[in-house]
Design a protein around this nucleic acid. Structure first.
Lengths: 226, 226
DNA sequence: TCAAAAGTGTTTGCTATACACCCATGA
DNA sequence: TCATGGGTGTATAGCAAACACTTTTGA
């Protein structure tokens, strides 16, 4: 048994990682949180936050941990996306990556680079840098999933803070769909949802009429629309 | 380096497997293809077909290979489902399993037990035996995915052979939904789909009026409904 | 008083549902 | 001739889309 490589198996084992595609919205633009890699391979290149699975930790835990370590962001909505395992995707060794999709609410977007990441930064999705590994594929898959789930789930609410106005909600949908929506129809649709309720409070902000505030009836759950 | 365990790493690596939940329909009942395990752990118990990822094979390839080796079934529609990696799910070592969903058309349901499986057999979904590992969870996830995709994709057509009648198609939907559908509405819906076309042929079978035959315009693709 | 976002209903078209009878065949 | 599944149309209700003006506030 080698001193440097003390973990031995009868058959070759791939490494397992998680990678997290974190989306956020800023100034009506969809953004993605990337880290600049500090170590080879692809040192200096931008990549998704992520890293190796600890042998005694669950996949979800690993995704949340790596995200927190590399970007300082925690407490986000996280869902497993897809597993990427093409043979040559990592030049070091065979690596199977379980990819996650995460959404950052406005106001939970402050980042600080951590351990293995030289830097962490938000990029507009329409202006991404070149990416390490097959991370561009993972991002494309994540974006497709996000758009698909708009139609039948309350996933878009995860971009908003605990309380929000219907105007803010509409701007989230407009940003994601890259289309303008009719205000009356949108409000009719939103107010008919069982998943949101008024708080009774108003938001007074800017030189215009104050807006009613709403919240999710169940903040944690992404629900299916009927 | 140990002779018996020659594959060594600086950090512990989980094993990676694929498991396949194969659904089929027989006598208007939804069935699942299981194998009886020949080796420990859970020797003698029923389980999903699946096994260890070869170090130089893709995940999809592994799923198809293990399915063919253990059940003799090949050429099925296969899609990646979800990755199961809870810490204690395999008593031998840490195992991360990439689960797949597969559908067997009527007429591609002949099975023969292979290498590692003592036996392969179809079970009605409402009468499954006790299952090894967390395979009951995988099956529940696969069943949920299958039902969800009925609503917005042509996945149900994968239960049918190359050509089929509208009556057969309707029975597939009725079996999956466990509900009776109105014949005229169903046919109106099906005939409006861009994804099917008439073959011009008729099926003469049984003592009743012959039925028009249809086929998918693109047999391989599971398409999204508008 | 002006600018900026909040708030509010009705009409119209389309899609989904409910519903019952005749047809062609083999036994 | 009978049993069996194949094949067909219309009326109605519910949902989605189009569309414009008034309200409230702070500057």
């Amino acid at each position: 048994m080698s001193q440097a490589e003390p973990y031995c198996y009868a058959h070759p084992h791939p490494a397992v990682t998680t990678d997290v595609a974190v989306f956020g919205i800023c100034d009506d633009a969809l953004e993605l949180l990337l880290i600049r890699r500090g170590n080879p391979p692809f040192a200096g290149a931008w990549a998704l936050p992520g890293g190796f699975l600890d042998i005694d930790e669950d996949l979800d835990t690993c995704a949340a941990r790596e995200l927190a370590e590399e970007t300082g962001v925690s407490g986000l909505y996280l869902e497993q996306l897809y597993t990427f395992g093409a043979v040559g995707r990592d030049p070091r060794e065979r690596v199977v990556s379980v990819a996650y999709l995460a959404l950052a609410p406005a106001g939970q977007r402050t980042v600080k680079a951590g351990d293995d990441a030289a830097e962490a930064q938000w990029f507009r999705l329409d202006a991404l840098p070149n990416l390490a590994f097959d991370h561009a594929d993972i991002i494309a898959t994540a974006h497709r999933r996000l758009l698909a789930k708009l139609d039948y789930s309350t996933i878009a609410f995860q971009f908003l803070p605990d309380t929000f106005t219907l105007g803010e909600l509409q701007r989230v949908y407009e940003t994601l769909l890259d289309a303008e929506l009719d205000k009356r129809n949108f409000r009719k649709w939103a107010l008919a949802l069982a998943q949101i309720e008024g708080t009774g409070e108003m938001r007074r902000q800017g030189s215009h009429r104050p807006a009613r505030l709403y919240r999710l009836t169940d903040r944690e759950r992404v629900a299916y629309l009927k």
